[in-house]
C-alpha cells in the first residue's frame, strides 16, 4: 500500500496522507485532481467500489470537506480521498460517470449541505426533506434548537430551572447584587 501511495504521490503530489488502520488510508488531493485520481485508482489499482461519499462542514475555515471512500476487494483496503471545496460557492464535479450510484449520494449532499454537483442526475430533487424551506440542515450554521422549538410545539406543563439561579434562591437569597454607583443626581 505504501508503494501505491508513493506512486500516486509521484503522479499528483498530494497534500497529506494518513494511515488510520492497516486497512484504512486517507489522502487529501486538490479539487481539480479528483477525477484523475479516481479514474486511475478504479481502472489501474483495483479500487473498483465507491463505498460512500460524505461531507464535513468546516465552518470556521469556510470549507466543506468531501470524502470519497473507495474499496479494493483484492487487497481488502479502504482508501478515502479527501477534497476541500469552498463553502460559499459549494460546487463539485459529479462522479456519476465513474460510479453510477454516486448520483444518490450527491443528491443527499445537495439536500443536506447545499453542495451542488452540476450534471448529476436528479440532484435537485428532495431526498428525505420534502418541502424544506430552511438552509440545508447539516450546515453547522443551521440552528437545530431554534428550528425544533419553532416547528414542534411544547406540550403544556413544561418548566425548568437554571441551576445557578435555583441555588441562589435556595442557599443565599439574602446576598443581593452589587450596589449601584450613586451620583449627584441620584
Amino acid at each position: 500500500m505504501e508503494y501505491l501511495l508513493n506512486k500516486i504521490k509521484k503522479m499528483i503530489k498530494f497534500e497529506a496522507s494518513i494511515k488510520q488502520r492497516d486497512d484504512l488510508y486517507f489522502i487529501t488531493v486538490k479539487k481539480e485532481q479528483l477525477e484523475l485520481i479516481l479514474s486511475y485508482l478504479r481502472d489501474n489499482e483495483g479500487f473498483t467500489h465507491l463505498a460512500f461519499l460524505q461531507a464535513v462542514d468546516y465552518l470556521e475555515d469556510n470549507k466543506f470537506q468531501l470524502t470519497y471512500m473507495l474499496y479494493n476487494y483484492d487487497i481488502k483496503v479502504n482508501l478515502g480521498i479527501k477534497v476541500y471545496i469552498d463553502r460559499e460557492k459549494a460546487e463539485m464535479v459529479s462522479i456519476h460517470k465513474f460510479w453510477a450510484h454516486s448520483w444518490q449520494y450527491q443528491r443527499e449532499l445537495h439536500e443536506m449541505y447545499g453542495i451542488n454537483f452540476p450534471g448529476s442526475p436528479r440532484v435537485e430533487e428532495s431526498f428525505v426533506l420534502e418541502g424544506w424551506e430552511e438552509i440545508p440542515p447539516m450546515r453547522r450554521d443551521f440552528n437545530t434548537l431554534e428550528y425544533s422549538i419553532k416547528t414542534y410545539y411544547q406540550r403544556p406543563g413544561r418548566s425548568t430551572n437554571d441551576p445557578a439561579k435555583y441555588m441562589k434562591e435556595k442557599m443565599y437569597k439574602k446576598y443581593a447584587e452589587s450596589p449601584k454607583i450613586r451620583r449627584d443626581n441620584d
Binding site: 434548537l145 425544533s148 414542534y152
Partner: peptide
C-alpha cells in the same frame, strides 16, 4: 439538547447543597 427535550427540575430527596444544585 437540540430538541429542547430536557428540563431541570427539583426531585424529592435531592438536596441543594454546595457542588450540587439538587435539580
Amino acid at each position: 439538547c437540540q430538541n429542547a427535550a430536557i428540563d431541570m427540575v427539583p426531585v424529592e430527596g435531592q438536596e441543594t447543597k454546595e457542588g450540587n444544585s439538587g435539580l
